[in-house]
Simulated scan of single mutants.
Amino acid sequence: MKKLILLLVLISFSCKEKDANAAAQSEVLTAAEYKAAISETQVQLVDVRTPEEYAEGHIDTALNIDFFRDDFKSAFATMDKDQPIYIYCKSGNRSGKAAKILSELGFEEIYDLEGGFSNYN
């Protein structure tokens, strides 16, 4: 009986872990797909580069939330988790990490720019 209970508990945790991992997915869009998506409607668009990188050039209407900020997670508190969020960085590395964090925060639709801002223009 104890073995059966243990088995059921392990299966339960396993299923929950799979569901959490499924939610952790983000979609990487090509530059053309990304441009089309952010131009269709007003979207939540976030540049996760440093303020210095942002100042050198960014996508119009992008909000700058530096990935390296101590309060990176809390900076998204006022954003709508039920609406798509589009993120980018310089090359796609930081935004990929940011996508995982946003998923953990409860964002459901996360879109990342393939190759980052360097690939956008």
Results as ranks from 00 to 15, higher is better:
S39N: 08
A32S: 05
A22S: 10
D70G: 13
Q42Y: 10
Y86I: 07
E109F: 12
A24G: 12
A98L: 07
D19I: 10
N119V: 06
E33N: 03
S14L: 09
G115Q: 09
S95I: 02
L105D: 06
S12Q: 06
D47S: 09
L6H: 03
I5M: 11
S39H: 04
K35R: 02
R49S: 04
G115V: 09
F107G: 00
F72W: 05
D82L: 09
A62L: 08
E52Q: 15
F72H: 03
I11S: 03
K3Q: 08
N64H: 05
Y54N: 05
Q25S: 11
I59S: 10
A75P: 00
M1E: 04
I85C: 08
N64W: 07
I65Q: 01
E56R: 10
L113E: 14
I11L: 07
I65R: 03
E33W: 01
L113D: 05
A32P: 02
A77Q: 15
Y111Q: 06
C89E: 13
K73M: 14
E114L: 12
F107Y: 09
V46Y: 12
G92R: 02
A20C: 08
L45Q: 01
Y34T: 00
A22R: 09
E108P: 06
Q83S: 03
V43A: 04
K35D: 00
M79H: 12
L4V: 11
F117N: 05
D80R: 00
A62F: 04
M1S: 09
C15A: 11
C15P: 00
D70V: 06
D66G: 01
R49E: 00
C89K: 04
L8G: 12
A23T: 09
D71S: 10
A75H: 13
T41F: 10
D70L: 11
I110P: 02
F68N: 15
F68T: 14
K100Q: 11
A31M: 03
I65M: 04
N119T: 06
K97G: 01
N121R: 13
D60A: 07
A36P: 01
D82K: 14
N93W: 11
